[in-house]
Design a protein around this nucleic acid. Structure first.
Lengths: 315, 315
DNA sequence: CAGATTGCATAATCATCGGTTATGATCGGG
DNA sequence: CCCGATCATAACCGATGATTATGCAATCTG
């Protein structure tokens, strides 16, 4: 019944004192004001302005509208300002979820970049394994999920349902075999998995364990998994103690101290892809786009820095 | 840029969780919501809803709009409610100005009627002589002015400029000659003004004095005005004390005690019209219209009661 | 007092907005 | 694997809300 335009007009009349001035103030012509008032009057069924001679005055009802206009228009302006702040990255929120081993290096670097570039957007970070983070993304509880996908026997097979989602490849994370320094193969240039079929194995998270089993299956053995822990530092400790060998991604080795163990590249090499995942719509949200850019940059997936350089520099 | 309709839609989506439900809640069809959202999105340049599969969720920007919608829509409702209250006489204001001698009878009766009939409208009353009350009306500081106009030598001549104003005739107020009980003509049925050319006169307000001079001029003499006071009770007191004679309207005589004096109708009779004056626009304001009706009723100008009856009953 | 000026109202016109119905595409469930 | 639910799109259409042109009345001015 009453809309913002009507209120704006009433307030302009109250402020300016005449239809003509109100029209000028609003950038309209005088007849526009005339009929706007007439429409308002017949909509509300009340007299809003009192015409006396060639001057107009607001009636009580008109003053009521003009008075309310102040608050309503202010609220609308505030909403608009908030929206444009979000659009202009002067505000906004990104809810990031990343799997634990990325929290050590990738995420902190991303947050630093984001903070430096857009200090006014607030970033929320939650540690979550890909199944949960992707579920949160689907549920709407998360804007960007950092996940990983092993390149299994059949290359490119992603272990999660990524339909309806968009992914951005951040980096390839090579998986290495970690053995004690004292191990017979510790000095090898590369490790052939079948050489370690008799070892005791230390497995990581469920999906990593699945990957280990898959690789071993290809190599023709079934590994003897003696320990399971999601804590990579603990895995390295167990290897150091000579209690077994483990497959550990580069991403971890770059972040955790591992002087006491030997890390061998696999032959043939095995990698996992680190992916940033979001939805097509969120991709167009400035803050989310900025977060994705920061992730790429932190991962070295930016055109200027090739993934190889980055991995090489740290390995 | 953002209007109330858009906010209403965003809030409905937030509340209902889907376009279809929102459309039902608002009484629209689903495509209406679809394109409303699209318009809003391209106006603001931001993504407002996130489509995931066949469900929609608000983005942060969308939630901002939905959040602001609550306040804005509440304010609009409040404004609308105030307007309809005024239209329905459940609220509203009338600023009444009346000349002093009407304050005694006419105005109190009017206020009582108004209060009984529409207890929720607030009436402001200011005592003012017609020139000032009409000026206030023109200035917009008053909604209804109760004025009087003498029917001078040339009948129907109104002493005020009533262009642009509307008048409603409330009653005819006959002017009587007031003389001491002891006066030689105290027992006459009617008074011929020329018989009193030698008297000392007690004049009232400037316009009443003007009327006296006009009547005397017609009767062929120039009255000797010994006293001037706007206080009618004082006038009666002066007459009682034998200090002179005075022309006093019936309206006063009906209200003030005057046992000690004789009141004679003039021959030929002289009257003043009591008028309610307002502007054409204000006439359509419910509270003003109600006030006018009450005035008419209080004055007996209502069709059911003729002015003659009323005046006769009280004289 | 007449004429110029000012300010609102009205008429005719036109673009856009904001709704409708009809239909298509796609996701999720039986 | 098909069906139902949900959103998107297209075509259409009336009402809204602006414009220009003009009229009329009040006020100011010489």
């Amino acid at each position: 019944m009453i809309d913002a335009a009507g209120l704006r007009v009433m307030k302009a009349i109250a402020d300016e004192g005449s239809f003509t001035s109100a029209a000028n103030a609003l950038g309209f012509t005088q007849p526009a004001i005339s009929q706007m008032v007439r429409r308002l009057e017949q909509r509300t069924g009340t007299v809003l302005v009192e015409r006396y001679g060639r001057q107009v005055r607001l009636t009580e009802a008109g003053q009521v509208l003009a008075r309310h206009a102040v608050g309503v228009l202010a609220a609308l302006d505030a909403a608009e300002e908030e929206i444009t702040a979000i659009a202009g990255l002067r505000a906004g929120r990104v809810r990031l979820q990343a799997f634990p081993s990325s929290s050590a290096t990738l995420v902190p670097r991303t947050l630093a970049i984001l903070k430096a570039r857009h200090p006014d957007i607030t970033v929320t970070f939650t540690e979550a394994e890909p199944p949960e983070s992707l579920a949160a993304l689907r549920r709407g509880d998360c804007d960007v999920a950092v996940a990983f996908a092993y390149e299994g026997g059949d290359l490119g097979e992603l272990e999660e349902d990524l339909s309806l989602l968009v992914t951005r490849r951040l980096m390839d994370d090579e998986v290495r075999l970690v053995v004690p320094r004292s191990h017979a193969h510790a000095g090898d240039e590369a490790a052939t998995l079948s050489d370690f079929s008799g070892e005791e194995w230390i497995a990581g998270c469920p999906r990593c364990r699945g990957h280990l089993l898959s690789l071993a299956d290809t190599a023709g053995f079934r590994p003897n998994v003696a320990f399971e822990t999601e804590d990579y530092v603990a895995q390295l400790g167990l290897v150091t103690a000579g209690l077994g060998v483990a497959l550990v991604p580069d991403l971890i080795l770059n972040a955790a101290k591992h002087d006491e163990v030997a890390t061998l590249p696999l032959a043939p090499a095995s990698r996992r892809q680190i992916l940033a995942v979001t939805t097509p719509d969120l991709l167009r949200v400035p803050a989310v786009a900025a977060a994705l850019d920061a992730l790429c940059e932190a991962a070295g997936a930016d055109p200027k820095v090739s993934p190889a350089q980055l991995v090489g520099a740290k390995g």
